[in-house]
Simulated scan of single mutants.
Amino acid sequence: MREYDFPAPERRVRGRRRFDDDEPQFLKHGWRTEPADGDPDDESDPETGQRWSSWDDAVHGPEPHPAWLVTELAAKDTDLGVLKTGKEADVHLVRRAVPGTDRACLLAAKRYRDAEHRLFHRDAGYLEGRRVRRSRENRAMAGRTAFGRQLIAGQWAAAEFAALARLWEIGAEHGNIAVPYPVQLRGTELMLEFLGDPEGGQAAPRLAQLRPDRAGLRDLWNQLVDALVVLARAGYAHGDLSPYNLLVHRDRLVMIDLPQVVDLVGNPQGPEFLARDVRVVGNWFAARGLPAELADPSVLTGELLREAGIR
C-alpha cells in the first residue's frame, strides 16, 4: 500500500467496494428529499428565513469534527442567498448559529434540483460502473424515469459526499490534497465547509479568475499534480476537472465539485475521463506560462495511469 492510498474500505464478497456500490445512504435509511407536510423542524420562519439545524438527522462528516463546526441541536440555519448556480445543483450560503451565543459558522449548501428540473444531460458515461442492488432501480435509472432521475440525483450527492469524506481524511493526515470539509448529507442536500471570507461571505476565487506570477503558477501546478496522484493511487479521476472547479484559498489549491467522480477501473471510459481532466487543466497552465515539459498532458496522464495500476 502506498503512503497516500485511501484507507481500506469494508470488504464485500465480490470485489472491491466503490463509492456507490450500495444504494445511497439517504435511500437506505429512508431520509426525505423534501420536508414532510406539517413538520415544523423543516419549515423556515417566513420573517427571518431561519430553520432549526438539520444536523441531528443527517449523515455527518469524518470525525473528529473541526472545532469551527456548529453541531449543537439548538442551532438555527439561515439561508443568506445563492453562491453559485449550476446544471445539476445550486449552492447556497448558510449561516448556522446558536441563538444567544457567539457560536456560528458559514456553510455552503449544495442542493440538487428536483427530478423535474435537473439537467443531467451527461450522466450516462459517468454512471458506468455505478450500480444499485435492485434491478428495478437499475432499470429506472437506465430508462430515465422520474424515479430513475431521483435515484441518479441521489447517486450524485452520495458519491460526492463519500469522495469528499475520504479525501478530507487523506488530506488531514498527509496534506497532499485539499477539499472542503463535508459537513453533512441529508437527502439530496450536501452541506460543506465554506471557503472564503467569513466576514463578507465572499467565496474563495476560482483558479480561472487568477493570474499568478511565475513562482505562484509553478506552486499551484505542483499542488495540482500532488492531488491528482492521490486520486489516481486510489483508482479515481475527478471526471470534470477544470480551472472553474479548483479554488485557491489562502494560497492552497482546493478541489471542489466531485459528484461525477470516476472509477478508473470499474468505468470503461475511466482513462478517457482522466486524460480529459489532465488536458483541460494542463492547457490552462501552459497558456499562462508553465513550461511545456511540465504541462505535457500525455506525459502526466501516463504517469497517473501507472499510479492507478492501469499501465
Rank of each mutant, 00 (worst) to 15 (best):
D5H: 13
P9S: 03
R12K: 08
F19S: 12
D20G: 11
Q25P: 07
G30L: 03
D37M: 14
D39K: 14
D41S: 15
D42Y: 14
E43N: 03
D45G: 08
D57Y: 04
A67I: 06
A67V: 06
W68Q: 08
A75R: 01
K76N: 06
T85V: 00
A89N: 08
R103H: 15
D114A: 07
A115V: 04
E116Y: 03
R122Y: 05
D123Y: 03
G129M: 04
R133I: 09
E137P: 00
N138I: 02
R149W: 00
Q150F: 04
G154A: 02
Q155M: 05
A157E: 03
L164R: 08
R166W: 01
L167S: 14
I170L: 10
H174K: 15
G175A: 08
P180A: 05
Q184N: 10
G187A: 09
E189S: 12
M191H: 15
L192A: 07
P198C: 04
P198Q: 08
G200W: 06
G201M: 07
A204G: 13
P205A: 05
D213P: 15
L220H: 03
N222V: 14
V225Q: 14
A227W: 15
L228G: 13
V229K: 13
V230E: 14
V230Q: 09
G235H: 03
D240I: 07
Y244S: 12
N245S: 11
L253N: 12
V254Q: 04
V254A: 02
M255G: 10
M255F: 09
L258W: 01
P259A: 02
L264W: 01
V265D: 03
V265N: 12
P268V: 06
P268A: 02
Q269W: 03
G270W: 02
E272L: 13
F273I: 01
R276T: 05
R276E: 10
R279V: 01
R279L: 07
V281P: 06
N283G: 11
W284T: 07
P291M: 07
G309E: 04
